[in-house]
Structure formats: C-alpha cells, structure tokens
Design a binder for these strands. Structure first.
Lengths: 100, 100
DNA sequence: ACAAACCGGTCTGCACCACAAACCATTTCA
DNA sequence: TGAAATGGTTTGTGGTGCAGACCGGTTTGT
C-alpha cells in the first residue's frame, strides 16, 4: 500500500502560505515589511515561508536597497500563479465530492 | 508577537480528513471498509484520522456487529456539519483576499 | 484440524515542518 | 561611542501525517 495522490499541493495548502500567496496575487510586488504587517506573523515565520515558496519556484525574491537599507521584495512567478489556480481546482473537486 | 487567528480549523484542513469529511457529508453513514476503499488510505491511517475527528466531536463512532463480525460505522455529527460549513466560509474569505 | 485471509483496529518509528525566539549585520539616533 | 531600531536569517522543539508491523477475533478453504 502506498501513494497518496491527494493532488493538493502541500506547499500551498499551508494556511500561512496560502494567505501570503493570496496577498501577492493581488499586487505587483510586496516587500518584507508590508507582508509582515499584512499577515501578522513573526519575522522568522514569514522568512521561512517565503523561502519555501521561493524554493518551490512560486515566488521570486528580489534583494535590493532602499537608500542604504536592505529591502527585499517578493513577487509571484508565472509558475506560482498556475500552481495556485491548480490548487483551487483541486480543492473545488474535493469540495464537490460529497458522498462517493 | 504571537497570535495566528487563521480561523482555519486544522483538524478539518488536513487533506485526508477533509476528503473523509466530504465523503461522510454525502452519505448517512459509512463503515470502515467502505471508507478504506473510497479514500485509498492504509488502515492505520484511516483509523487515526477518524479517531481525531471523533475526538473533535465531528464524527460519531458506531460499533456494532454484522452477525459475529465486528462492524464500525461512522457518521457526521451536527457539530461536524457546522464546522465544515465554517471551514469553507473561512477558506472562501482567504480566497477572495487578493491584495489587501 | 490447521492454515490463510479478513475485519477493525493499535502501536511504533520516522520524517517533515510550523512556529517562536534567539541571533546577526547594518544603520540611525543621541 | 554606544543604544536602539531595521531587516532579516538560523536554530530548537513540539506536533503530526504516514506506512507498516502487530494483534485478537472470525470465517473460509482443504
């Protein structure tokens, strides 16, 4: 016995990341500080989640400067958008799976 | 810093359990064997997930006999139905949360 | 009578991971 | 020359999803 073809992308399924992705999908790009206050999570948390999304290729990390202060921006990749769409599709399938 | 008022019920959010709940929400009751084949998970897994749902008060466990063979049935509780409805509501809120 | 298969689980071990807090490098303020 | 703020990264740990071994009982096959 094996295989769990859930289809539900675990990277996206995590509530914190799901929220993060939804925010990103509505703006062109967002920086760390903005996301921090928009999502109300700790810095470490945000950092690691964003990292996970980057590794999955769902968000692009743009490190730069604002004057002399470091500033990191994030934006959704095309791959990310597709994955999100697919995620909602899968979820809808489950949702409408009432009884057998 | 603290608080994660996600609202998303983790007991329900887990894909395996979500699927399980959706199956149950479509039938009056289902037994172990049926769920096993309907969901394609291992016995241990199904057992523990169902257990978790029972502890949360979302499903009711009905142990009985079919002749001399044990037969365990599961059915959604009212509390379970409400929790599911609330879950979908929360999820819809997140879904429509595009950019602030 | 004995073995094998089925039913409904429990228990064990592992691998992963979300989370908060500690930490670090700069920069600004006094 | 600090002290505190800014912008993150790294670390420690508890929680848990998962498969598979095991188990008591029943039924079926030979």
């Amino acid at each position: 016995m094996s295989e769990t073809p859930t289809g539900l992308d675990r990277v996206i399924h995590e509530p914190a990341r799901l929220r993060l992705l939804m925010v990103l999908s509505g703006v062109d790009e967002a920086d760390f500080k903005f996301l921090l206050s928009a999502l109300g999570m700790t810095k470490g948390n945000l950092s690691s989640h964003v990292d996970r999304l980057a590794q999955a290729g769902y968000v692009q990390v743009l490190k730069g400067f604002n004057g002399k202060v470091t500033r990191t921006c994030y934006r959704l990749t095309e791959r990310g958008r597709e994955a999100i769409a697919e995620y909602w599709r899968e979820l809808d399938a489950i949702r409408s799976m009432r009884g057998k």
